[in-house]
Amino acid sequence: MAAVGEVLEADRLLVGYAGTPVCGEVSFSVAAGEVLAVVGFNGAGKSTVVRTLAGRQDPLAGDVRVHRLPVALDAVMFRRQVAAVFDEDVFFPSLTVREHLLLVARGHSLDDPENAVEAELEFFGIADRAHVVPDALSSGQRRRLLLAAGFIRPSSLVFLDEPEQRLDPVMRDALSGRILERAGAGTAIVLVTHDPRLLVRTATSCLVIDEVVTTVDTERGAQIIAGT
């Protein structure tokens, strides 16, 4: 049984494609306020693990639970509690940047959606592009819009798949602060990253993905060497 405060649990989880695993079994838990960094070499299976944890593909074996319930992508509770930012996430082509964020804010019943949207636009440096559609954004600006949509909504669990991609160093540091802020408010976060600075600043534990999967407990600010 999950301990009090545990948000996400994986028990002997095996992930892959067409019945073939891409890495070893995964077992861990993430409690409220913890940041689990998922690391490994390119192609090790990090994103496959996180996509499975987030309910975007089925596991080959094992169990994943969020708040002690099986992952169900279409379940109302799951959609209310879980936010995710993946690189392949899509936009509504006819909605502007501001309209996208308003849709998310209103859909999750924020008390003051307009002000919340303005705050995210300013934080992610896309306020001057709020009136354009996503196709008019650069790849870095689209990444910032995805992150804004992930952070604007309330959630108890956030999945971030290489959120640092196409961000400049200043925005990466701002993102680190935002992750710590959410964790400090009690959100559990699963972070796939290749950025050592982001990992060291934010992670409370580290999941190393390889043929044999290991979990390393750490403290923010400690040096982490990820590899097998």
Results as ranks from 00 to 15, higher is better:
68 R>A: 14
49 V>E: 07
33 G>I: 14
22 V>Y: 01
31 A>Y: 00
47 S>T: 15
57 Q>H: 09
49 V>K: 11
51 R>Q: 14
60 L>M: 09
33 G>R: 05
39 V>Q: 06
68 R>K: 04
23 C>K: 06
17 Y>S: 02
34 E>K: 07
19 G>R: 00
57 Q>L: 15
70 P>T: 00
34 E>N: 04
31 A>Q: 03
26 V>S: 00
53 L>N: 07
19 G>K: 00
60 L>H: 10
35 V>L: 05
47 S>C: 02
65 R>P: 13
18 A>E: 13
71 V>G: 03
65 R>V: 12
32 A>Y: 06
69 L>R: 15
29 S>D: 03
39 V>C: 15
26 V>K: 01
49 V>W: 08
66 V>R: 01
72 A>S: 15
57 Q>D: 14
47 S>Q: 00
39 V>T: 15
22 V>A: 01
28 F>E: 04
21 P>Q: 02
57 Q>M: 15
59 P>D: 09
50 V>D: 10
62 G>Y: 09
15 V>G: 05
69 L>F: 03
40 G>P: 13
71 V>R: 01
47 S>Y: 02
23 C>I: 08
36 L>D: 03
27 S>C: 02
39 V>F: 03
66 V>M: 03
44 A>C: 06
32 A>S: 15
56 R>A: 15
52 T>W: 10
70 P>G: 04
58 D>L: 12
59 P>N: 09
55 G>Y: 11
34 E>H: 02
71 V>I: 03
16 G>A: 09
58 D>M: 05
24 G>W: 15
68 R>G: 09
23 C>V: 10
36 L>H: 12
24 G>F: 14
32 A>P: 09
36 L>I: 12
65 R>Y: 11
62 G>N: 03
38 V>F: 10
65 R>F: 10
23 C>P: 07
33 G>M: 03
44 A>I: 12
58 D>C: 02
38 V>D: 02
59 P>H: 08
67 H>R: 13
26 V>I: 09
47 S>M: 01
64 V>L: 06
48 T>S: 14
37 A>V: 12
28 F>Q: 04
18 A>C: 00
72 A>M: 09
19 G>T: 00
33 G>C: 08
35 V>H: 02
30 V>Y: 02
62 G>K: 04
60 L>E: 11
43 G>D: 07
63 D>A: 08
71 V>T: 04
44 A>S: 15
17 Y>K: 01
22 V>M: 00
45 G>E: 02
15 V>A: 08
40 G>W: 04
66 V>P: 10
42 N>K: 07
28 F>H: 06
71 V>Y: 06
52 T>S: 14
29 S>C: 06
34 E>M: 06
44 A>Y: 03
36 L>V: 14
69 L>T: 13
26 V>Q: 00
18 A>S: 07
35 V>A: 03
25 E>Q: 12
26 V>L: 01
58 D>K: 04
41 F>Y: 02
15 V>K: 05
67 H>E: 15
68 R>D: 14
27 S>R: 11
70 P>M: 01
32 A>W: 05
63 D>E: 13
41 F>L: 13
46 K>S: 10
72 A>Q: 15
44 A>K: 05
69 L>H: 11
46 K>E: 04
58 D>R: 09
63 D>F: 01
64 V>G: 10
50 V>A: 14
66 V>W: 01
59 P>Q: 10
21 P>L: 02
36 L>W: 08
57 Q>W: 08
